[in-house]
Every structure is written in C-alpha cells, then in structure tokens.
Amino acid sequence: MSLTREEVEKVSLLARLRLSEAELDQMTRQLGTIVEYVELIAEVDTTGVEPMAHVADVANVFRDDEVRPSLPRDEALRGAPNHDDECYRVPAVMGD
C-alpha cells in the first residue's frame, strides 16, 4: 500500500513538522518505497507470538521516595531559547 500526499501532510502535523511543497512530494515518494519494503513482515506467521518491546525482562525499577537535590532552576532554564528566570516563555496557547 502506498501513501498519499494528503496522508503525508496529515502525518507532518501529527509529527509537528512543517514540510515544503517539494519536501511533501519527495517524502510521499520515499516513505512509499520504505513502507512497501517493511510490509515484508506481513508474510510472517505471528500467531500467538508475544510482542517484544524490550529485550531485557526488567520490571519497573523504583527508588526510595525521598527528597534529593535536583537540577537547580537557573541551570534548567539556562539552555531555554526564551525564559523569564522562573518559567519557559512560549506564545500564548489560549486566545491572543
């Protein structure tokens, strides 16, 4: 099954990417080729096979619930493109 340009455009919104017209064309073509290739896995009989999300059979790991020093706020904010020394600054999310 190949992808349509409309699907690729919709996925670009889900992925929070903005693609140019030329990129949309190229992406539609390239993703189509790759998706067609990975559909090879459809021929494998997977009846009753448990999906393997992780190779290590590890359960959740917990630590003691105690207060520990964490990254100081000024260090956490230092790399932010825009902040006001207390919070990250972003465009208004609700009605501007």
Binding site: V38, I41, A42, V44, T46, V49, E50, P51, M52, A53
Partner: peptide, 8 residues
C-alpha cells in the same frame, strides 16, 4: 507485528 517478529 514488528515487535512480534523481533521476538522470533
């Protein structure tokens, strides 16, 4: 399906 084949 990929995760299932991964186990195989």
């Amino acid at each position: 399906r990929a995760l299932q084949v991964r186990r195989l």
